[in-house]
């Protein structure tokens, strides 16, 4: 189903939701940079820049309390954080690369252990995606099988039109319910044409072949060649919409405190440092190899999906210019070279 939403009505929709007590989260300027955050009113929204951090934080915050403890004499009192208290949320202005990562994350958060913190936010959030009309040469959604108009992960999906309004695709029951509640703001699609979509320039990867190459190249000169210069920070993982590793720590005093969950990153030396002192990933290239393996092989092995949506954030922010699109392009090339002409690939 498609509807028309004028620019004015789009902002009215958000203000209506906010005054109705719904938490509306959208990109907005925060101490000088665009980040997703709750809006006080719709005009705070900034739609012309990709937020520095991805939309994953709407479901998987940078840091959250999961429990608190208090000790009195011999008595210890534990108090759980109740996911039921999480607010109903509408997440707006989400780019296709951010939105598409959300269902990818469902895999790991609802696997053997059901992470109620993630899943309850997921149930309570309606995602309004937004098509991209510009891309830089760090963007490569089209290389990983997505596109600037991909609706995966969105409940409603907006495509900017020449008249400043939006064409609104209704992609799920949640989306349909939101439209039904505010139906007077929508009308039937008119004659205004969609603005030209962004066109990322990285040629498409053959993800099956890339995975096939990774299956056989845990040891390869590529890792030292590309990642010896990696400085081992958490920047690439933290800005990534799909990276989802976290750490759990207790913070507080002997008497009281909180158990907290916060983002972790495989680039850190500490990530696999055992209590014994042994570290199986004792060098930076081994840590970087894990980043590529997890995204293009392990996650595919386990959940049948790729853990990279081509948002390009890690490419833009890596302090030492490590470019995942360039590395996977190289792997893609090697994978195709080692495929016998006309033969079957390993996959």
């Amino acid at each position: 189903m498609q509807k028309y939403l004028s620019r004015h009505n789009f902002y009215t929709l958000l203000d209506t939701l906010i005054s109705g007590g719904i938490r509306v989260v959208a990109p907005r300027m925060t101490a000088g940079i665009p980040l997703y955050g709750p809006l006080g009113e719709s005009v705070e929204m900034v739609l012309d820049q990709l937020p520095r951090r991805s939309a994953k934080e709407a479901f998987f915050p940078v840091c959250e309390d999961i429990m608190s403890y208090e000790k009195e004499g011999q008595q210890v009192r534990l108090t759980d954080v109740e996911p039921a208290s999480f607010p109903e949320t509408v997440l707006v202005g989400v780019r296709p690369c951010d939105a598409a990562a959300i269902p990818v994350l469902d895999g790991v958060f609802s696997w053997d252990y059901k992470d109620e913190f993630f899943l309850e936010r997921r149930r309570k959030t309606t995602v309004i995606g937004l098509a991209c009309t510009s891309a830089d040469d760090a963007c490569f959604c089209t290389a990983v099988g997505l596109s600037p108009a991909d609706t995966r992960g969105s409940d409603l999906f907006l495509t900017p039109l020449a008249d400043g309004g939006y064409l609104c695709d209704v992609c799920s029951d949640k989306g349909e319910a939101l439209v039904a509640d505010t139906i007077n703001l929508f009308s039937e699609p008119g004659s205004s044409t969609p603005l030209p979509l962004a066109a990322p320039s990285v040629p498409a990867f053959d993800l099956k072949k890339v995975k096939g190459w990774l299956d056989g190249h845990f040891e390869d000169p590529l890792w030292d060649g590309t990642a010896l210069r990696c400085v081992g920070c958490g920047a690439c993982a933290f800005v990534c919409p799909a990276c989802h590793c976290f750490d759990i720590v207790d913070e507080g005093t002997e008497k009281s405190g909180k158990r907290r969950k916060s983002w972790d990153a495989c680039g850190f030396w500490k990530f696999t440092h055992h209590a014994s002192g042994h570290n199986p990933r004792d060098k930076q290239p081994k840590r970087y190899r894990n980043r590529i393996m997890h995204k293009f092989k392990y996650y595919d092995d386990k959940f049948g999906q790729t853990l990279c949506t081509g948002c390009g954030r890690c490419v833009r922010i890596c302090p030492v210019g490590i470019d995942i699109a360039a590395i996977v392009t190289e792997i893609n090339g090697m994978a195709i070279e080692c495929t016998p002409a006309g033969g079957e690939t390993r996959s």
Binding site: A31, L35, V231, C233, G234, A235, F268, P319, V320
Partner: peptide, 15 residues
Amino acid sequence: EQFAKCIKCYACRQV
């Protein structure tokens, strides 16, 4: 306000 943005990625330290 500035420190509230910090995500402890330690890129600043690592470089």
